[in-house]
Every structure is written in structure tokens, then in C-alpha cells.
Simulated scan of single mutants.
Amino acid sequence: MWPLMAVLLLSSLCCGSAQLLFKNINSVTASSCDKVIAIPCYVSNIKAKEVKALDLNWKFGNTVILIFEGSVNKYSRAPKFESARVSTLALLQGNASLKLNKNEAKEGNYTCTVADLGREGNHTMELKYRRASWFPLSENILIIIFPFLTILFFWAQFGILIRKYKSNPMNKKIILLSTSGLLLTITVIVGAILFIPGNYSKKKSYGLIFFVTPSVILVFLQYHKFKPAIGRTLYAMIILTTIQALGFVLIMAGLYHSVTVCEPKYGSLLTAGLAIVTLVELFGLIYMKWLDPLIGFL
């Protein structure tokens, strides 16, 4: 028994621990906004002084991702993981972390296997993605509510114009307003379907564009809704059009800073612009209904 213990002791003294020790990381959470995903793997007792004494193997489940053979200093990658990479210099320091492009990094278990001077060990960790909405909840709610309220106020104004002035349905202005209103409504509905809150994606960015840009139609319709513009009606048309145009500028500024990034920082600009456009339609409705009986059609 004593000779055996002596052999084990000598082995421990000359070669270090017989087993590689890994930093205890059971899972890692990545953001869907990250372009590159880093999956950590740290060995605390690497003894090799040269890369040729090290071997590394990364797997996703039972699928091989990457193999590094130190003896020939060669990497081998699976076709599905062409972006997979590790740092050779970092490996000598015990850092065997894997980096993958987001489109190749799927949720699940990843196993890191390291061999060093005849010793070998492995560690498995789970990759998870953080489920977060593209915009904060409060901004999401406002972005969805304002366009639909705007449409509601527009059609209410349209109804007032039809009933109050008994307009001919074939009147050119009625045709223009109804056609524009239908276009506005359909575009907003399509945008809403594509924009359903969730993680950032190209589809959602296109949905947001469809959802909010039709507001510009309302700016150009102010003149037609208040025509003929005389007296107080002229001033109302100018004021409402100017304010609504300002709202649309804010919408475009917020949109520009949102659709190009995964984590928008200027969503407040977008919601402020949408709020202004909606409030102008509400004020226009109130003005038509109660404040000025002079609105009519040519």
C-alpha cells in the first residue's frame, strides 16, 4: 500500500492534479441583440507551457462544433458552425471559451473538453436567450394605442363631415378622404400584425415602419378636411397642420433611431410624435363637432 501511495504522491507533485478543474458555470444567458455569443469555459489548473500539449473539443449536445489539435496546431469546424473560434493564446491561460455568431448559437447544452499533458476533463453549460421585448412595455403599449386612436378620430371626423353637410358620396373630396382613410387603416393593420411585441427582428422593424409612417397622410389631409378654409377655419387648419407636421418629424426621428438598432434608446421620440399626431386628430374632431359651424365643402 505504501508504494502505491508514494507513486500517487509523486504523480501529483510532478504533474499536478490528475484531473482538470473547471470554473463552475452552469449556464450563460445571452441577449438576442448580441451579434457574437461567448460561451465560457475556464480551466484553473492548466500546466502546459506550449499549445502543442493541449487539445480542445467543443460539442453542442452530441454534435461536434470545433476540434483543436495542439500537436499539429490545427482547427476543425463542423459545417453548421463555421463562425466557431477560440483563442489559442487564451487557451494556454486556461480560457477555452467558444465564440459563435448569433445565427449559429442555438439554445441548449454545450460541452467543453480539454486535454492537457495527459490529463482530461470536461464541463457542460446551458446557453439561454433572454426574452425581452424590443421596446419597453410602456412604450410598446403607446406605440400600439396611438395609431389606432388616430384612425378612430379620423373616421369620426369623416362621419361628421358626411352627416353634418349631407355631402354627395361622389364628391371628389369624399372619395379622396375615404380612399386615404382606407389606405391608412389597412397599412396600420398590416404594420400592427408584423410589429407584434417581442424580440427585435427585421420583420418587426418593417412592421414598425408600416405602423407609424402612414401618419404623414393625415398631415396632407388637414387641408381637405377643412376646405374651404376661411376665417377661424383657416387658422385652425394652419395650426393643426403645423403641429401635426411637427409630430411626424418626431416620429421619423424616433423611427430612424429605432429600426437600425436592437435596443432603441429614443423610443420616447417616437411615442411623443405619435401622441402629437393623435391629439391633433382629437382636437380636429372637437373643432368640427362643437367649435366651428363654418366647415363645408365646395
Rank of each mutant, 00 (worst) to 15 (best):
M1Q: 13
M1S: 14
M5L: 15
A6C: 07
A6Y: 04
V7F: 05
L8H: 06
L9T: 09
S11V: 00
L13P: 00
G16V: 07
G16F: 11
F22A: 04
K23N: 00
K23D: 00
T29D: 03
T29R: 06
S31M: 05
S32E: 08
D34A: 07
D34K: 09
V36P: 00
A38Q: 05
P40N: 03
P40K: 03
C41W: 00
N45K: 07
K47T: 09
E50A: 11
V51N: 02
D55H: 05
F60Q: 04
N62W: 01
T63N: 01
G70Q: 07
V72A: 08
V72I: 14
P79I: 05
E82H: 03
A84E: 12
A84I: 07
R85E: 11
T88I: 13
L91Q: 05
L91N: 07
Q93H: 02
Q93L: 00
G94M: 01
K99D: 03
T113L: 08
V114K: 05
G118C: 07
R119P: 12
G121M: 08
Y129R: 10
R130N: 12
R131H: 12
P136M: 06
S138W: 15
E139D: 11
I141C: 07
I141Q: 11
L142G: 05
L149N: 12
T150F: 12
F153E: 11
R163I: 09
Y165S: 11
P169Y: 11
N171F: 08
L176C: 07
I189S: 09
I189W: 10
L194N: 08
F195S: 13
P197D: 13
G198D: 12
Y200P: 04
Y200L: 01
S201G: 13
Y206G: 04
L208A: 04
I209E: 03
F210R: 05
V212D: 04
V216P: 01
I217E: 02
F220K: 07
L221T: 04
P228F: 12
G231W: 07
L234C: 03
T241R: 15
G247R: 04
H257Q: 14
V259H: 13
T260N: 13
C262W: 15
E263H: 13
E263K: 15
P264E: 12
K265M: 14
K265G: 11
G267S: 11
L270S: 08
L274N: 06
V277A: 10
E281R: 02
L285I: 00
M288R: 14
L291H: 03
D292K: 02
L294I: 03
